[in-house]
Design a protein around this nucleic acid. Structure first.
Lengths: 150, 150
DNA sequence: AATATATCATAGTAATTTTGTCAAGATTAT
DNA sequence: ATAATCTTGACAAAATTACTATGATATATT
């Protein structure tokens, strides 16, 4: 599995926030109940999402989390990277690699770079707004889909 | 890191086999020496590659491994899948999922499927022949690149 | 036949990562 | 005040990763 539970749970949580965009904050407790997850584990996940600047928190009664930007301004790739670290196939590519010394002299480097570019291209092209749009199309077609998640 | 050492070492080993295609088999010992890896670990890797039908083995003195097909007939995706298992972002997609029961009713499923299709599209499109071609272009330009690997 | 060279199969193991749990504190709305 | 909520850090079981070790089996060469 390329994506761990942190990334998978986190993306679903961000999807809930995207659906609630413009409304009151959603609390950890609410999201945990929606998705049947432990509150403590979700807290860790939101701590990372906040560190990456993808969500804003409101403390105190009635508080919770909201998206830091519009759903269209946050990509699936940003969410996954915040939770999983850079989605690199090998550590000679990606921003953290800061340019492998052997780049330009190594054949496998070319391949890892190509895979990295392809993968990030895919995940960065999908935004939370796309997910919300998918969702609306889905329940327009089949209303019973509203509460199904896998 | 999306790809573990098994996949990374294994792809480099298959690259050596692709460069030696049409010649005598390469032994584990030779490949291990080329890449400075443990022979036992490489054996495990080749056991999986053989199980997937990607290499043929010849036992006994002078034996070793050869590609089971032409370099153009083996994709990077096949190699990585043989060594890492299916490259799925979540277990509701991929061949092993055999169609998640909630497919068509679940929004995140759509996303995982899209990511899976994108990723496999990239890795299946690159063949070992492409790597060999890259290599030849590289050393034509910069001969000192011949023995550089990262 | 003997020997050297290989693959093949299985088991063990230390280190790391994943997947959480638990508890104490800080902040804010009401 | 107080109840709700975020924040932080420590802890730990389970799984995975990344090997190591051993012995067996098959084949070419002498």
């Amino acid at each position: 599995m390329i994506i761990s539970t942190k990334g998978r749970y986190g993306l679903r949580a961000m999807f809930e926030l995207a659906k609630a965009y413009g409304q009151d904050p959603l609390s950890i407790k609410q999201i945990a109940a929606m998705q049947n997850l432990s509150e403590q584990y979700l807290e860790q996940i939101f701590s990372k999402l906040k560190g990456a600047g993808l969500v804003r928190s409101t403390r105190g009664a009635g508080g919770g989390y909201t998206l830091a930007e519009t759903p269209g301004g946050i990509s699936v790739g940003q969410v996954l990277t915040a939770l999983e670290g850079e989605l690199v196939p090998a550590d000679c590519v990606g921003d953290d690699a800061a340019g492998c010394a052997k780049a330009g002299l190594c054949t496998t480097h070319i391949i890892w770079q190509r895979i990295y570019d392809g993968f990030t291209g895919v995940v960065n092209a999908i935004t939370l707004q796309d997910m919300v749009d998918d969702f609306h199309r889905l329940i327009a077609d089949r209303p019973q889909a509203k509460n199904v998640k896998c």
